[in-house]
Simulated assay, not measured.
Amino acid sequence: MSRANQPSRPLLAFALGSLGLLAGMVMIAEGGHWLSPNPPSIAPVEDTGDPNPTSPAPTHNRRPGQPARKIAENLIAPPPLDPSGIERTEPRPPLGELGLATAPKTPMPRDWRETLLFGPVATSSAVFEAMGRRVAISGTVNIDPDRTCTFDGTAWPCGQRARAAFNAWLRGRALKCLLPPDADRFAIAVPCALGKQDVGAWLVSNGWAMAAPTGVYGKAEAVARNARMGIFGPPQ
């Protein structure tokens, strides 16, 4: 191209500058509105008072007793329940009657006192010695240590086993018995307790002693016999 046909440099520079200025001022038309190529910064959304915000509250700020926040309440919901279809049933009866026996209600003389007997040692299934006294548990029939029981044709020393079971349960713990003032002079049958447990009830209900005919442990003995516990069961 000849120098005469080439545009002059000032004209070319002016044209390029005009194109750059026009490109910077171009506006984009969208949806009938003119938008700037550089969108303005988004202002923070003001609180609209929505009672159910979408952002969950931090769990570490939850105070004890504050109700739990429901998750996906509109997606997961409990099945509808018709109250008319609910039927109230009677409470389940006790599994057994072993704990129904209570301490004898026989009135005792006023001068009898509850006395702690430390270090008791069973000499038979319902008799023990402690602090120089020999005490039998009232309302029970003692099993002599020499007694032998038979179960399904097999004999076994149930008397010795009953005494051992009584000692294992006592473990030398103090018994609280209702004693007369002169109880150290002779053997006596009185009610005793280990903590809040009636000793006679425990012995009879576990089959390690029998109930006296006029005592309060007859029902407990019947349960022990039916359950084949203690002397009424297999060799132990």
Rank of each mutant, 00 (worst) to 15 (best):
M1C: 12
A4H: 05
P7S: 11
P10G: 14
P10V: 09
L11A: 14
L12N: 06
A13L: 12
F14D: 13
L16Y: 08
G17F: 03
G17P: 04
G17Y: 04
L19G: 15
G20I: 10
G24A: 15
G24D: 08
V26S: 13
M27E: 06
I28T: 13
G31D: 14
G31E: 07
W34T: 03
S36D: 13
P40T: 07
S41H: 09
I42D: 15
I42Y: 10
P44N: 11
P44W: 03
V45K: 11
D47M: 01
P53G: 02
T54P: 15
P56M: 05
R63N: 06
P64A: 02
A68T: 08
A68Y: 08
E73Q: 08
N74T: 09
I76F: 09
P78D: 11
P80I: 07
P83R: 00
S84E: 13
G96K: 04
L98E: 14
L98D: 15
G99V: 07
A101T: 06
A103F: 04
P107L: 13
W112F: 04
L116N: 11
P120E: 05
P120L: 04
S124P: 02
A126T: 09
A126M: 10
V127D: 06
E129D: 11
M131D: 14
R134L: 05
V135R: 06
V135M: 07
V135Y: 03
A136P: 05
G139D: 10
D144L: 03
A155M: 04
A155Y: 02
C158P: 00
C158L: 01
A165Y: 01
W169S: 11
C177P: 07
L179E: 01
A183C: 00
F186I: 08
F186G: 14
A187L: 01
A187H: 03
V190W: 03
V190L: 04
A193M: 12
V199G: 10
V199Q: 03
G200E: 06
G200S: 12
L203M: 03
L203I: 03
N206Y: 00
G207R: 04
A209F: 09
P213D: 14
T214C: 12
G218V: 08
G218N: 11
K219N: 13
A222H: 06
R225L: 02
R225V: 04
R228M: 04
R228L: 04
M229R: 15
G233W: 00
P234H: 03
